[in-house]
Nucleic acid binder design. Structure first.
Lengths: 133, 133
DNA sequence: TCTTGACTTAGAGTGTGCTCTAAGTTTTAT
DNA sequence: ATAAAACTTAGAGCACACTCTAAGTCAAGA
């Protein structure tokens, strides 16, 4: 079954703008999308799946450059399976590292919040006495 | 004890550049730093601690604008403790959400890696027969 | 048929967060 | 004393990832 979606429909589905979809195609993240007789883009369900995967790569911090490489490998077919896997594994490591840092930083921020809570209490009683603020 | 560090020393300690340290001061993330008689900046250990905390906020995705607000509240003293806590709590929620998304996206990427591994095997046996690639 | 709105392209513009330049002063090592 | 390195400022420039504009074509409803 050939799904045939307009750029606006795809924009709505993927949370990207029509501008961004054209941009992604222009820079090679998407292979040239099929066209209606009028020249308007018609996206297939495979296109949508690919766009959604691209979005996950972006959301996990992969730079556009690397996504372009990945898209190019994909276009070259099954002989690049290993390279694509390696690229994703390398990206996975970056995500793991980022997650670790994020969790560590979150911890410190949570400690600061606790510190503020404590200091707020002290300050409250003091400012009641001295009617500050 | 008054630690008196030059901008290069602080740059080395914080992994920021001297340029960035001046930039942070210029935009109000740092209150005007003390100066030597020559006009050169001299950073205190409190400055370092604050810069390190700022770096954690940045690393967890807080926009500069929000960091500026936070820095301003801090300058206003103890009466803004509650507001500062609320700002951090709101940021904490953003981090939590981001972590959740990251983990979900990571999962999908890991699945793709597994899928590639499987497909690689199939492809390997087939390409041996047909001597492709 | 007309009008409204969506589509097309090439290319310019934007926001964020730095990052660097230029021109001049200060410090430090020889 | 002098050269090299580090500091200062104001402001320009840059990388990234979009985001929008202009000028024109196409499509769908009244």
């Amino acid at each position: 079954m050939e799904t045939e979606l307009s750029i606006q429909q795809v924009a709505a589905m993927t949370q990207l703008t029509a501008h961004t979809l054209r941009y992604y195609e222009r820079i090679g993240l998407l292979a040239p999308v099929e066209r209606a007789a009028s020249g308007h883009r018609r996206y297939s369900s495979q296109d949508i799946a690919w766009i959604n995967f691209l979005t996950r790569l972006r959301a996990t911090g992969m730079p556009i450059r690397e996504m372009q490489q990945f898209a190019e490998l994909r276009r070259q077919g099954d002989c690049t399976l290993q390279q694509r896997r390696q690229l994703l594994e390398s990206h996975q490591q970056h995500i793991d590292q980022h997650l670790e840092e994020l969790i560590q930083n979150l911890k410190v921020i949570q400690e600061k919040i606790q510190y503020y809570k404590q200091k707020e209490k002290q300050h409250d009683t003091r400012s009641l006495r001295e009617s500050e603020c």
